[in-house]
Simulated assay, not measured.
Amino acid sequence: MSSPTALVLRHDVGIGLGNVAATLTSRGYVVTTLDTPTADLAEVDPLAWDVVIALGGAEGAYETDLHPHLAREIELLTARAAARRPILGICLGAQMLAVALGARAWRGPVHEVGFLPLAVTEAGTAGPVRHVIGVPMMQWHHDTFDLPDGVDLLATSASYPQAYAIGSWLLAVQFHPEVDEAIVDGWIERWQHEVTDVPGASAAELLAAKDTHLDAAQAASRALVGEWLDGLARSGPDRGGVAPAHASSGRLRS
């Protein structure tokens, strides 16, 4: 019997799997990461993996002319969503999923940066997103998306939708469950100069917020992602879940 597999679509080495990695490995997943700006996505079979995780990035999901790899990723996500195979989208990943589901991603009027509270909807309280209730979660984005038809809205911020789902197989979050200390420190070092106009987003304020909120955010993230993965295992492949451990062996197209 082989282990379940996860394909991670990464757009920047500084925006990696982070806190989510241990949650996957604790459940036996073998993780493969593709750096999508340089990978040959035409060689990737979108259905060969038990789970696909699309991470964040500095690109906009609407910038496919400027970043052609995004168009190929959206095609991959569209094919996978049509087959109802498990997908987790984070930040840019959530925006690309919205586009794959027929909605619009766009640059919003508000730049959300830092550990910010979320309002969890009634639908959100019934599933894994409930773990972020009362826990400020890391945000770092200006872009947003229109909610696709047929999804359940799970959480919002003061300005934007923050989480949505379809059944147990698709989960998209605008906030960042993957952040750990190294990721947050790296973002502050690389990008704090871009958000000097955002209240509470000075380097000193972000570092203080990290000290206050990161441990709780990581715990909530582990619970959220872990419960989602466990739900996939229970639902089974016929309902868009993870197949038994012997079922997935493919990786790339031959």
Rank of each mutant, 00 (worst) to 15 (best):
R84G: 12
L70T: 03
F175E: 05
D40Y: 09
G240L: 10
G60F: 13
L47R: 15
G124W: 03
Q218D: 00
V31H: 04
Q174H: 07
V129I: 14
W49M: 11
A158K: 11
E75F: 00
R251F: 07
A247H: 15
M96F: 03
P37W: 06
S254N: 04
D215Y: 02
H11C: 11
L207C: 02
D143R: 10
T144W: 09
V52W: 10
A247E: 12
W140G: 02
M96W: 02
E73R: 08
T212D: 11
H142G: 13
D215G: 08
A123N: 14
L116C: 14
P161Y: 05
S26E: 15
L101D: 08
L92E: 06
L229K: 09
V132H: 12
A155N: 05
H213S: 07
H213K: 13
A103C: 13
V44M: 09
A155V: 04
A119G: 15
E75D: 13
L66S: 14
V129S: 08
Y62I: 00
E122I: 06
F175W: 15
L101H: 11
L232G: 10
E59V: 00
G240M: 07
R239N: 14
S168L: 04
S254A: 14
C91M: 06
R251Q: 12
A208V: 00
R234E: 14
A105Y: 12
S235Q: 12
P237G: 03
H141W: 05
Q95E: 14
L9K: 07
L252A: 06
M137C: 02
F145M: 01
V110G: 02
A54S: 15
M137Q: 13
L77G: 09
S157L: 03
I74N: 06
T125H: 15
T121R: 05
E194Q: 15
